[in-house]
Amino acid sequence: MNNIDLKIEEFKKYYHANLAYYNSALTFLIKRIESLPNVEYVSGRIKDYDECLSKFDRKYLPDITSGKKDYRIFDSLSDFIGIRVVCLYLRDVNIIRKGLSKYFKEVAITDKTVQIESTDDKFGYKSLHLDLSLNDKYSKKTQFAPYANIRFELQIRTVIQDAWSVLDHKIKYKKSIPQSLKRRINRLSALFEIADDEFLRIDDEIALEEKKISDRIKEGGAIENDKPLDVFRFLFVALKYFPEHNFIEFKVDGFVQEILDIKKEFTESELNDVLETFLHRAEEIAENEKKALNPYTKIRYCLYLFDRILFSSMLSTYQKKSTLPTK
């Protein structure tokens, strides 16, 4: 048996003997990473045995001389444990990278974003690849000690980058395709990149609109006439009457859309007038029914009392009966 065959046999025994340990390490590492801010989701894997050998044969074996006997196949596999972190926005990549320093130290870095942006003829997905291991502080802690010598590869991607990587995987071994197809792939890749930038800009603008609401409330801003209702203007009015309620984004969005589906031109000032005029009646109904009504239900009552025909769909038949005068 020649030297390489001995090394393969050695690696085979090592792989199967330690697989359970590395799966345990993977679970441990994912739990640490999931706790970091701005992480949307985390996934990981242990590289398949055949995949390990294939990568070693392709990438590392040519650099190892036939006479060299003091190497291990496993030592060449920095991505034996691979973890992928997905975040929403480009800004989150660096936030997560900084957060990782709580537990880990960087052994090596591959920034595919820099690689791709430095060329004009290369296509592929952007992401940040880090080779990590536990930092000195945590490697000494009892519960961390079993994994003190673990080195793993971690990729940080946005949701958009992750989506592109799925497509990129289909074409990554087809670099000799016709130039016309390469051009089309580059155009598609550019669209993904634009989408990443636009989602970030939109998120920034949403944060700015939310700050405007907060500032208007703090400064006692006046209700603005004839301004079409949207999520932000709804919140400005609603928080005036329900300052303690935590309005959840997706619920607000759905509720505002329901109002606009009924009356497209509904305005901020109209909503304020409706609540100012009829909220006391909604409170009386809650008291008569001996029920604690949430703000959305109270606003539904107010809208219905404002125009029983137009906003008829806002209440159930039973709720409509409760608005009738009691004898």
Rank of each mutant, 00 (worst) to 15 (best):
R300D: 11
D162F: 08
F266T: 03
S24T: 00
I248E: 10
K47L: 11
I33P: 11
L315I: 04
L26H: 01
R84H: 04
D226T: 07
A145P: 00
I194K: 08
V114E: 09
L77N: 03
I202E: 04
I259E: 07
E219S: 15
G221W: 12
S313M: 11
S189D: 05
L134R: 09
S78V: 10
D204F: 14
F199N: 01
T142M: 03
K68A: 07
K172C: 07
L271A: 03
D226M: 08
E210Q: 13
K291Y: 11
D63F: 12
T65V: 08
S313A: 13
N94Q: 14
L305M: 11
E153A: 05
Y138W: 13
K98I: 05
Y14T: 05
L26E: 01
L293K: 07
D196H: 02
E249T: 08
I223K: 12
N94C: 12
Y296M: 04
R32P: 06
T317S: 14
D5H: 09
K251C: 08
E289W: 12
D70G: 08
D70A: 07
T277N: 09
D121P: 07
Y22K: 04
D70E: 10
L77T: 01
V256P: 07
K321Y: 13
E284A: 05
I4G: 05
E51V: 10
K13A: 09
M1G: 06
R201E: 00
K141P: 01
S54F: 14
K212M: 13
L29S: 03
K105G: 10
Y89P: 07
V107E: 14
S313N: 07
R201K: 14
T65R: 12
L61K: 08
F306C: 09
R45W: 13
N149A: 06
I177R: 04
K7Y: 00
L275H: 09
R84A: 02
Q319A: 03
Y103F: 09
V114G: 02
E210T: 04
K98M: 11
K140P: 00
D168A: 08
L53K: 01
D121K: 12
S165L: 02
S43N: 10
Q319V: 03
Q115S: 14
V256L: 10
L315N: 01
D75Y: 10
A108E: 06
I95V: 13
K170H: 08
E51T: 14
V237F: 11
K31L: 15
F144R: 01
